[in-house]
Design a binder for these strands. Sequence first.
DNA 1: TTATAAAGTTAGCTTTGGCTAAGTATTGTT
DNA 2: AACAATACTTAGCCAAAGCTAACTTTATAA
Lengths: 161, 161
Amino acid sequence: MTQKTPEISSSSLVSQASEGADSTAGSQAERFESVRRAHQSEMAEDYVELIAELIVEHGEARPVEIAERLGVSQPTVTKNLARLKRDGLVIHAPYRSVFLTDEGKALAEICRKRHRIVVNFLKALGIKESIAEHDAEGIEHHVSKETLAAFESFTQSPSKP
Amino acid sequence: MTQKTPEISSSSLVSQASEGADSTAGSQAERFESVRRAHQSEMAEDYVELIAELIVEHGEARPVEIAERLGVSQPTVTKNLARLKRDGLVIHAPYRSVFLTDEGKALAEICRKRHRIVVNFLKALGIKESIAEHDAEGIEHHVSKETLAAFESFTQSPSKP
DNA sequence: TTATAAAGTTAGCTTTGGCTAAGTATTGTT
DNA sequence: AACAATACTTAGCCAAAGCTAACTTTATAA
């Protein structure tokens, strides 16, 4: 039972599924590991997506606004911004607005698109917008490339698989 | 730049009708809070569901097997079982097998059903089983009652909402 | 029955992501 | 220019969930 070290590659938005749908310990463990890995990038994804939104809306992203939108305290934002900065996703000088690096912008764009696809898919299924937005927030981080493609194609012609 | 003014104007009287998918700070924060809450129950749900599986398969659930299936170390399982015990979901004496309380059984059953609904839904969308199982593992914890119902009804008649 | 292997636990470390309290910086008002 | 309000940071706390190393208990096999 060798334990894997974290090894977070920030570009791993798309989870890889193993072949075959067996229920052996191995593949089940891989699935759980994959979910744990996804959780590690969620914070980053939520922040960069929100920062991008704020820049579009207000021309800048202030920590106080990030805190308010995420429903967390300002010190939490400060701490997480330091992490995002460490990981090369944002640019942030003390007491200044927050900006996205190129990598951060790229990540934000991917997240934005994925979010829209998931929301539109749920709405196409007949789910009302407020709930679609709510569920998408949790679901979007766990959708594989294949599933995302299926969501998108369904939304475009909501009749057949 | 301009540090934003509080904007106290009409908050308490007017803005109560935030139905629909608005992007106000309030509702967005609620969604994020909800996702954070869901994360807190994921560990419990995964464990309880797996323990139920193991009991069906082997007549008992041994920590070593839980560790293997989840892909975590044995000490991690020991620690998490203590939390589940604290929360009234499992019964566990040192060096013994793990059992579910009535509450644990109920939770496991809900999770099992939900898991099947999500997997079957994804398969009905045309996603192959291994990927469906993979994505379901992450998605299932974030699906609202309404969305789950929509998934189920779609699976039964995969034509239209 | 005793030695060894496997299972399980304990202790102690790490990172994440939350919080409050208190201090510092910036901005806005007078 | 001084002061008040707001924004931001720092310090220090907490719990969750992971790990390794080392120890104890249980099970197996000679």
